[in-house]
Every structure is written in C-alpha cells, then in structure tokens.
Design a protein around this nucleic acid. Structure first.
Lengths: 344, 344
DNA sequence: AATTAGCACTCAATCGAAATGAGTGCTAAC
DNA sequence: GTTAGCACTCATTTCGATTGAGTGCTAATT
C-alpha cells in the first residue's frame, strides 16, 4: 500500500487535531475538519489503512485513533524538509549584561519555556579543548590569593587559594606576566609537563605558587567538565498536558529534570541534522528512559571551535513540532551570531 | 476544659501516628498504640474533648481524627521548648572548595532535601550593607577590561566592560591602587558622591573609566539584590506524600518552587525564635499562598554582620518536625561556625 | 465518679451491574 | 469508488447496594 495524497491529508489532520485536543480523534471529526469533501465512512476506510500501515493506533477498540510514534516521525520529517527561510525575530532579551554566562543561559531557558509552554533545558558549553585567554592573580589579603581565569568564549572562573607566606605586590605582578606570556592561547591539554617545568624554573622562589595556581586552574576547569552545567526551566509546564500529569508520570519526569546528571546523554549526543544540529526524539527514541512518553527536541549551539552546548525542549508527543523547530532554529542562529560577535 | 496529662499523651499519639501513615487515626488504633492502658471508649471520650477544644478534626463523620493546624502548632511549640543539646554530626560534605558560594548553597540544599525527604530551599545572602573587600581591573584584550569584585564573605563577582581607548598596563596598575585605597571597607551605600568625585579627580584622564567601573560594580551588586538568588532542591519529594501529590496541588506547589520570585516573602521574614532564627509556618500561617496545605520551616544563617540568608524546608503538615528542627538547628550552627572561620 | 463493653448509627470508599455514547467495521445501495 | 445504515464494541459514567472503619451514646462495671 502507498501513502497517497488523501492519506497524507488525513494523517496530517489526525495529528493536528490530536495535538490540539489530546483526545483520540474519530472519523466524523476528521470528516468535518477536512473541507468535508469526504464522508466519515470514507475516512474510516482510510484510517483503517493508515492503521494497518502503522501510522496511527487505537488506544482501544471503539475509540478514535491517535498518531503512533511512526506517525509523528513522518510528520516531523515532513517539517524538517521545509527549510523555512523566514526568521522570525525573537525579542531582544538577550545579552544586555554579558559576561555572566550562567545568567544568560538561565534566562534563555526561562524564555524558551514560557514561549513554548514546554519544559526547556540548556547545557553550558563544555570546556575541554578550550583555550586559556587570560590569567590574573590578585592579593586579597595577606595570606590569600584570588585567581581569575578567563577562557575562550569569555567564560570567567574564580578561585581563592591560601599561600604559606606573603608575596609582595611586585612579585605578583611578575608572576602575572609570567603566567600570561607562557599560557595564553593554550588549551588545557597543551599545558604539559614541559611547559610547567619551564614556568617553574622561571618563577624561581615562587615555583610553589605556580604549582598551586596551575592545580587550581586545572581543578576548576576539570570540575566544570565533570559536573556539566545543565539548567532546566518550565518543568511544571508538563502539567498543562493531561497525558503527562498523572502523579506517577509527572513525578518520574520532574525528578529526572531535577537531577540533571540524568540528562547527560541528552546533551552529549550531537544533533543529526548536520546543518542546524537539530535532533528530534519521539517517545522511545529518547536516550532518557523517563521521557519515553514525551518528545524531545535538541539543538546544538556553538561558542567557538570545540565549544558546544545544547538546548532542548521536552514536551508531550503531540507537541507543536512546527513551532518548536522554528523557535530553536531561530535561537541557534541568533546565539551563534551573538557569541561570534562577542568573541571576536 | 484543660489539657491534662492524658489528653496531651493522646494528642501526641494521634499526631505521631498520623505523621507516619497519613491516614485519619481512630480510637482503637490509639488504644493499642498507647500502652493500651485505656480502652478505645475512653479514648473516644477524650478525642471528643480534644476535638471540641480544636486540636483535632474529623475530615468527615465516622472517620478517624487528624490534627488541626492548632494541634500541629501545639506539637511544634512543645519541640521548640526542648532545647536539645546533642548536636548530631552532619557529614563533612561542606566546603571542600570554598569560594564558589553558589555551588556550596546548591550542594547544601540538595543534601538537606535528600536527608529529610522534603523539599529544600536556600537563599543566598543579601548584599546591601555589605563591605567591599577588593577590586581588581585587568586588561583581557585591547578594548576590554575585566572587573573582579570581592565583598565581605568572599563572594566574588565578575564583569566585563568595553573601553573606548586602550589603557596601558601601568595605568591599570595605578587605577587598581587608586580604587582599592579609596573604596576598600566601604559598603555600597557609603560610596557616595563625595567619594566618587574625589576618585574621579585623582584618576585624571581616566575618570571615564572610573565611572564605568563604579557603574558596573553598583549594577552587579544591585542585580544580585534585586533578583535574590534562591535555590531549591528535592522539589519532587512532595510526590512521596499522597496528600500533596494530586495533580492540581502538585502543579501549584512545584511551579511556585520553580518561580523563585514567589518565595521572596518566605526568605524575607526573619525567624521568630530569636536564638536560632527558626520559624515554623503551619498551613495557612505561611506567607506563600501555594503552601497552605504544607508546613514550612525556615532558619536564618549569618555570614557576617548584616549578611543573612535563609534555609527552608517545605513538606506536608505531617512532617517530622522533630527531625527537621534538629537538622536545621544543627546546620545553622555549623554554617555560622564555618563562615566565621573562613571570614576571619 | 471514672472506665468500659456493647450496640445502633453514619458515611466514605468500594463494588458491580446497567446505561451511555463515541466510534468502528461491514454490507448493501448509490 | 463513495456513502448511508446498522450492529457491535468497549471505555466511561451513573447509581444503588455493600462494606467496614469509626463514632456517640447508654448501661453496666469497677
């Protein structure tokens, strides 16, 4: 059997309708919904075919039909094909006060969630292969040094370390020059033993401090790699969809969203669509078990070479794929543009 | 009528039992629960009295009794009186890597939630009246300055600003000295026009930069005051309590916890118990409407003079007050001790 | 006078049979 | 190929009967 014009129209009508209502949709509904060109009986025959082909299912005999995962998949693929060129403008909420990446990401997630009415997720960029841009030591008080590390993408990290004996301002100045001239532009992997021993040699009496500083820098960056930052927002939006809001499902889904370590796999996988990095998981396709009754759309954004993060939307299977995909594509475009500008 | 010994015993038994089961408790249950010294009939009479006095209620005729808010209140006050001296040791999860206050607070909330099985909330300290400890300007690249601000309590803030024309390293050094010698030890309110104009005068050609820096510093601190940092954890724990997990209530409660701005009032109010700063809200007593079916326990911790934050637990009315109060008291003690040490 | 046993009564929760109705599949007519 | 008509299915709703935990009251007991 083949998916002819009419079957496609009917399938789309079923999916659209089900997305709106969340209820199984029957033949009569569709008959009225689609210019009433065909009677309910005809629709019934077509639906019977569509069911046989696996695009729709009956939750039980004598109920209407709902789209199967395969049905959704067809629908989504259809949309992914239509490369919409119009880029609708997103409100200029972005990046008034840059510099605190976290804040921006959180705001972004919040915005995304309230725009779509689904749950949103955003992961901070990962730091391996990331170039050191700037290091600064400062004396906060007699025995305490503040280390500020700036890496590519203008991500700033602070640490405080205690030193054994006081260091004069001038010595700190020299250390700063030393550190920056030797380390700037290197990735964390490139700071190998050779570089380190050369540094320590030049530091003379303060080789101990150099050690301390390098350890902290490595630890800070490492820590961020390990406990990957993931922010979620609008998790409670799922209560807007009855099929997800019974206590068992809601509990499972929400606690997964709360324990961000369980979302790792979702942000690790790079999107399939090579151009936009967009990936759509429908139901069981999701790498996260708790989301088998949802659909998840993720997209990858880029801050610089090798500096990638993920944005995601989690909603019911009947989510408005068209809107979500459009929004994400749009956002990615803007993000990429923004960071490119900020960075250069 | 008076609350005699026996009535108190029975009231406590009812509350304890209800806390365990979450079901209305009947006379026979209590009769067995309390050394079976009294028969169910006796208990019934006493329960009748207790109901008349308002300590317990029947959800409907011919059901057992459950504690009223007044009943819980009695119970809690009882516990608050018993100043327990034994301070149980909390696991040494705290403060391995200090300096990133946020991380510590988040970890703390997570810990608290998983220890108690209730939802936990923690607010970062508020910054007004906070002393500036250290300012540092650094040149990241030709047109960009990094401003690092350290305030009392070792809270570190970063901002990046763009400058119109390049400033030499030496000039930056001078600016740093100028800023630190003039501003250190001042609160944000104390940096008034007098101080500012004096600063600008001394800065000479770079008075513009001073302006920029001061604006940023004020803005950063202001921003943190405005959007008070509140972290929640274990919100989904509420699904463990059937009386809170029906879709409507759960949705309301969880979205309140998600939109932290709605928790403002909870962390604004300073605890009533003058010594420990602990405050217990039972049901309607809570300033947050969405929590009228819950109990909320908050405690205030201190980082330094005028630098206060709040920790809170949100759970069902039948929460284990004894455990919660003990845990919070304990935590506060340790927090205070830790920050005192760190700070000095 | 306080306590307890006994019994009638109440009422939410549970169960199950019947009614409802949305929706299907099939057949026969158009 | 399309449609009208009808019997059939089955989740959901409705409603009365049943159950059982728990009470209040009274009379007997200590």
């Amino acid at each position: 059997m083949e998916l002819d014009e009419r079957k496609i129209t009917i399938l789309k009508a079923i999916i659209k309708n089900y997305m709106e209502t969340g209820e199984p949709v029957g033949s009569r509904t569709i008959s009225k919904y689609v210019n009433s060109k065909w009677s309910s009986a005809t629709i019934r025959n077509e639906m019977s075919d569509l069911e046989e082909m696996g695009y729709i299912v009956q939750p039980h005999t004598s109920a209407g039909r709902i789209p199967s995962d395969k049905g959704y998949r067809f629908y989504v693929d259809q949309i992914l094909l239509e490369k919409d060129n119009e880029v609708t403008e997103i409100k200029e909420m972005m990046v008034q006060r840059m510099g605190r990446l976290e804040q921006v990401l959180k705001a972004l997630a919040k915005n995304l969630a309230s725009n779509t009415n689904y749950a949103a997720l955003i992961s901070g960029p990962q730091y391996h292969r990331n170039k050191l841009k700037f290091i600064q030591l400062s004396k906060v008080d007699a025995r305490r040094l503040l280390i500020v590390t700036v890496v590519e993408g203008n991500i700033i990290k602070n640490t405080m370390v205690a030193v054994e004996e006081e260091i004069s301002d001038e010595e700190i100045l020299n250390l700063n020059i030393l550190l920056n001239s030797n380390l700037n532009g290197l990735t964390i992997e490139e700071i190998n033993l050779g570089v380190i021993s050369r540094l320590k040699e030049q530091a003379g009496v303060h080789s101990k401090v150099v050690d301390l500083v390098l350890n902290e820098v490595a630890a800070v960056i490492k820590a961020d790699e390990d406990e990957l930052q993931i922010y979620t927002s609008g998790a409670t939006n799922i209560f807007k969809y009855p099929e997800l809001s019974d206590s068992r499902k809601a509990s499972e889904l929400l606690s997964t969203l709360e324990h961000t370590e369980m979302l790792q796999e979702l942000v690790d996988t790079v999107g399939a669509d090579s151009e936009t990095g967009i990936q759509v998981y429908i139901g069981d396709e999701s790498p996260v078990q708790a989301m088998k009754d949802c659909s998840v759309v993720t997209a990858t954004y880029e801050l610089g070479e090798g500096l990638k993060g993920t944005i995601g939307i989690i909603g019911p299977k009947r989510m408005d794929y068209e809107k979500v995909l459009k929004t994400l594509r749009n956002l990615i475009t803007q993000l990429d543009a923004t960071f490119k500008k900020e960075d250069g």
